[in-house]
Design a protein around this nucleic acid. Structure first.
Lengths: 337, 337
DNA sequence: TCGCGATCCTACAACGATGCAGAATCACGG
DNA sequence: CCGTGATTCTGCATCGTTGTAGGATCGCGA
C-alpha cells in the first residue's frame, strides 16, 4: 500500500538502509547517491512511517496537553500557545479534556493513551493532595497551576497568592472597602481557588478590613454562567459591596452582565476586577480591568520544561518550579482612581 | 524498560500470544487462564505499546483536527466538541493550527505528521479552488465549512447563504433598512465570507434594498480587534446605517464595543447581529442576537463521517455533504421588533 | 607497493505487537 | 473406543524503521 524505504531503495538502486541514512541526514553519503535517493523519494512520494519510527526509536514526536475544557477561554488560549510552542520543536500536540474531574484526571495518568506521546502537560484541577502518588508515572510530566502536592514534579505556574493580593490591594487603593469575591471552592484545599482566596484575605488583613463571608460567592466551575449565577446570589443576599473580584475573567464577565441587568453601574457603583486577561476582556462593556498571569510565558515555558525532561539526561534533572510574572491591566471596569 | 507482552507471558506462564489474545478479547480462553493473565497484567502494570500496535495493524487510534487557531472562540468551542466526540469512540485528537494560511494548509495535507493519525478534519480557510488537487490525499479527510472545491470529498458544514439571508431578513423585518456588514474578504471566492455576503445581498435584493458598498467592511481575520477596527472605519466613512451584521460573533462584539464607545446606542440607534452563538454572546452588554449554526452537531457529524471513512469499506463510500440546521437566537442587541 | 584511516555503503538484528496456521486437548455421538 | 469438530493455546512471520557492526573503496604517506 504505502511507500516504504524498501520501495525507494529499489528505485534508487541502493540498500534501504542508505535511504534511511539520507532521510536522517547521515553525513557520509556521496552527493550523487544522495541525489539519486532524493529523486526516488520525490517520485514515489515517500513519507516515513511514524509508528515504525517510534517503535524503534522510543520517541513519538507528540506531547499531550490535558486541560479541563477548551470551552473555557483561558484554556483555549493556553492550548493555542502550547500547540504553537510545540510545533516550533516539531512536536504535535494531542489535546485531552478532563472536565476538571478528579477521576478522569487520575484515569488519564494511568491511560495507555499516554504511551502515544513523549510526555504530558497537565492542569490537575480536580486532584487532591492524597492523589500525589498518582503523579509517579513513567513518562515526563509537567504540571500547570499552583498545587501543593507532596510529589517532586515539574511545575509551571503563576503566583496566585501574590497576584490576588495585588489585585485586591489595587481595588483598596482605588477606594473600595467592601470587596466581594466570586470563585471560591468549598472543599478544595490545593487549587487556585484556595490560593486566590488566601491572597485576597491577606490583602484585607493588611489593610484592617474585616473578612465577610456574606460577600464571598462560590463557583466550582468558572464559566460565564457560573459568574452570573454567583452574582445573582450575592445580590439576593443583600449584603452591600462596592467592588467584585472575579477569580477569572469569565466569572467577572458573567457577574458584570448581571450587575448591569440589575441597574448597578460599573464602575461607578461597583468596580469589577477579573483574572486572566483574556482577549475578550478588552472588548466587554465596560472593558475589564484584570490580572494578567502571563499565559503565553506559561505555555512556552511548560513546553520547554517538558522538552528538557524528554531530552537526554532529562530524568536526572531535579524537579523545577517556574513562576510567571503577573501584571494588573487597568481598564474601565476598575479604574486606578 | 517498559513492560511487554513477553514479560506478562513469563509471569503468567503462557505464551505471549495468549496474553495478546486476552488483551484483545479473543473469546476462546479458559477462565482460569484469563484470570492468571489478567493478574499478571495488573501486577506488572502492563500497557500495550501503541506504536507497535499501529505498525502492525495500520490503525493509530488518533485523528487530527486542523483549525485556523484556537484563540478564535468559534474554533475553540468546535475543537472541544470534536475532542469529546472522538473520545466517545476511543480516539484521541491531535490539534493543528494553520492560522488560516493557505501554505500551511497545503503543507499540512502533505505532511508526514498526518501518518500519525487515521484521518483529518480540516477547516481550509485559506485554500483556493485551484488547490483542489491537494485534497487528493491517501488518508480519510473531512472538510468543514462550505467550500466549492472541484474535488469529491466529504463535507460537513452549515448553510451559509441561507443563514445569512435569514439573518438579514430578520433585521429587515425588525424595521432596519441600512444594514452594514463586517467580514467581507476581498479576493476570496470560495469561503464563508463570500457565501455570507451572497446571502446578505440576496436578502437585500428580495426586499428591494440597494446594495451599498460604503457600509460593507472587510475583515480578513475574524478577531474582536478586527471587528473593532472595521467599525471604526465604517464610522469614519460617515455613511449612515441602522444595523450591523457581523459575519461572526467576535467581529460583532468588537464592533459593538466601538459603537458604544462612540456613543451610539445598541440596539436603539444600531442593531447588532452576530453569527456563531458563542457562549459569550449571551453575556455581553447588550447580549448579542446571533445566528446559531449548530456547532455541536457539526463537530459530532464530522467525527462520525470521518469514522465511516476510516472503517471497513470506507474508501468505497461516495463523497457526502452534510448540512447543519441554523437558528436565529434573539437577544438584546437586535430585538425581533 | 603496502598499510591505514577516513569515507561510503550494506547486512542483520532488533523494537512490540497482531494475523495466520496449526498443534494439542476436550466433548460427545455412534 | 474412535472420529469429528469445537475449544484452547502456541509459534512463526511480519509491519517499517533505526542501531550496530562490519565490508568495500579510496586517498595518501611511508
Amino acid at each position: 500500500m504505502a511507500v516504504t524505504l524498501r520501495d525507494v531503495a529499489d528505485l534508487a538502486g541502493v540498500s534501504f538502509k542508505t535511504v534511511s541514512n539520507v532521510v536522517n541526514g547521515y553525513p557520509h553519503i556521496r552527493p550523487a547517491t544522495r541525489e539519486k535517493v532524493e529523486r526516488a523519494i520525490a517520485t514515489l512520494g515517500y513519507k516515513p512511517n511514524p509508528s515504525a519510527r517510534s517503535l524503534r526509536s522510543g520517541r513519538t514526536g507528540a506531547i499531550a496537553l490535558a486541560v479541563p475544557e477548551l470551552n473555557l477561554s483561558y484554556f483555549a488560549e493556553l492550548a493555542s500557545f502550547v500547540i504553537a510552542a510545540a510545533e516550533q520543536s516539531d512536536l504535535v500536540t494531542l489535546v485531552e479534556q478532563t472536565g476538571g474531574d478528579r477521576d478522569r484526571e487520575l484515569a488519564l495518568l494511568q491511560s495507555p493513551r499516554m504511551r502515544m506521546t513523549d510526555g504530558l502537560i497537565l492542569d490537575p484541577l480536580g486532584m487532591r493532595p492524597e492523589d500525589a502518588d498518582a503523579l509517579d508515572v513513567a513518562f515526563p510530566l509537567v504540571l500547570l497551576g499552583e498545587r501543593s502536592f507532596d510529589w517532586p514534579s515539574d511545575h509551571v505556574t503563576m503566583r496566585n497568592v501574590d497576584a490576588t493580593r495585588a489585585g485586591t490591594e489595587y481595588l483598596i487603593a482605588s477606594g473600595r472597602r467592601r470587596i466581594a469575591v466570586i470563585g471560591e471552592h468549598e472543599d478544595e484545599v490545593i487549587g487556585s481557588a484556595r490560593l486566590r482566596l488566601r491572597g485576597y484575605r491577606e490583602a484585607l488583613a493588611a489593610h484592617g478590613i474585616e473578612y465577610d463571608e456574606r460577600i464571598v460567592a462560590k463557583a466550582t466551575l468558572w464559566h460565564r454562567a457560573d459568574g452570573a449565577h454567583a452574582m445573582r446570589e450575592l445580590l439576593a443576599r443583600g449584603a452591600a459591596f462596592d467592588a467584585v473580584f472575579g477569580f477569572n475573567d469569565t466569572l467577572a464577565l458573567g457577574a458584570m452582565r448581571v450587575l448591569q441587568e440589575a441597574g448597578v453601574r460599573v464602575p461607578e457603583d461597583v468596580a469589577v476586577l477579573g483574572f486572566d486577561n483574556l482577549d475578550e476582556a478588552a472588548y466587554s462593556i465596560p472593558s475589564l480591568t484584570t490580572v494578567d498571569p502571563g499565559r503565553e510565558w506559561i505555555a512556552r515555558t511548560a513546553v520547554e520544561t517538558l522538552l528538557e525532561r524528554i531530552g537526554p539526561g532529562g530524568s536526572k534533572l531535579p524537579p523545577r518550579t517556574r513562576l510567571a510574572d503577573f501584571e494588573i491591566v487597568e481598564r474601565e471596569s476598575a479604574p486606578r482612581m
